[in-house]
């Protein structure tokens, strides 16, 4: 495998690096020491007319196959020769309709361990994208001037970062809960206001908070009601009363036995195939 790969590597240098249609490939490696390259596949970020995207059109470069040791700062540094970079977003999968980005709390949403990711690099000017598309590379993630930590050093710094700061956590919890309490209070006030007030068609919403609470609208509650009904009906039913019913139960019993017998036969067949009947 290795030998053939190397041969092809030589060929590549003559013909240019193969890339899927619409993309261009940029070789990237960790540092000078490494021999082989990974390839970033980049194209301009485009979405269909009408769909929203959180990344600006024309100015965004879509990058596939970003190696795990490559951070956002690192990408921003690597692409800055093409033009000033505004921001870099790294995520696990390419997503078009990007979910609304909330600033995630570092305490409650720890950053996952990175694998191979995709990146959206937003340049300040559209020219950056076109420059990036013809970038030859090879790019180096870790250089002497900008070393990137990996291995033991990275784990130690990760561990250091993970030692929590209780004060910051407390502050965050307090602010969140204040906001939450406020929101809930508002919602309740709104609900209270609407209580008993008919809407434009004249319907009144009955809630649990009213003077006479009603059954909660949950699946469990409705299942309970159905079950009660079923039992009531079953109590009234007559079993083994008519001759045909009697005959049918007997037949049913026989059918059960037959079915069991078939099952057992199959089991035996299987055991025989596994030579389970040789006591030696």
């Amino acid at each position: 495998m290795v030998a053939r790969r190397r041969k092809r590597g030589e060929r590549d240098s003559e013909q240019g690096i193969p890339s899927p249609p619409g993309y261009s490939a940029i070789p990237i490696k960790f540092s000078e020491k490494q021999q082989a390259f990974h390839y970033l596949y980049v194209r301009e970020h485009r979405v269909r007319e009408g769909t929203k995207s959180s990344w600006p059109q024309k100015r965004t470069l879509f990058v596939l196959n970003v190696p795990p040791y490559c951070t956002e700062e690192c990408l921003s540094r690597l692409f800055s020769p093409c033009g000033p970079v505004q921001s870099v977003g790294l995520q696990e999968k390419p997503e078009l309709a990007d979910s609304p980005k909330e600033p995630k709390s570092k305490f409650f949403h720890p950053t996952p361990i990175p694998g191979f990711q995709v990146a959206y690099v937003v340049f300040q000017k559209p020219g950056g994208v076109s420059a990036a598309l013809v970038l030859k590379g090879p790019l180096l993630v870790s250089t002497e001037s900008h070393p990137v930590k990996s291995g033991i050093h990275k784990w130690i710094s990760d561990y250091t970062d993970s030692v929590p700061d209780p004060e910051a956590l407390r502050v965050e919890v307090d602010t969140f809960m204040e906001a939450y309490d406020k929101r809930i209070a508002e919602e309740e006030a709104k609900a209270k206001e609407k209580e008993g007030v008919p809407d434009e068609e004249g319907w009144v919403k009955v809630t649990r908070r009213g003077r006479r609470p009603v059954l909660p609208r949950t699946e469990a509650a409705s299942l309970r009601v159905l079950e009660r009904e079923r039992r009531k009906r079953a109590r009234k039913e007559l079993l083994n009363f008519y001759a045909w019913q009697h005959r049918e139960t007997k037949m049913e019993h026989l059918a059960q036995l037959r079915k069991k017998f078939e099952e057992d036969k199959q089991r035996i067949e299987l055991m025989r195939a596994q030579r389970k009947f040789r006591p030696y």
């Binding site: 790969r5 190397r6 899927p20 960790f30 021999q35 990974h38 390839y39 040791y69 291995g151």
Partner: peptide, 20 residues
């Protein structure tokens, strides 16, 4: 055009990720 794992680079990544 097909995709295959980039084995040589991956083998080097194994060493990079576990530096030290």
């Amino acid at each position: 055009l097909v995709m295959v794992p980039n084995v040589e680079a991956i083998l080097e990544d194994l060493a990079v990720l576990g530096e030290g």
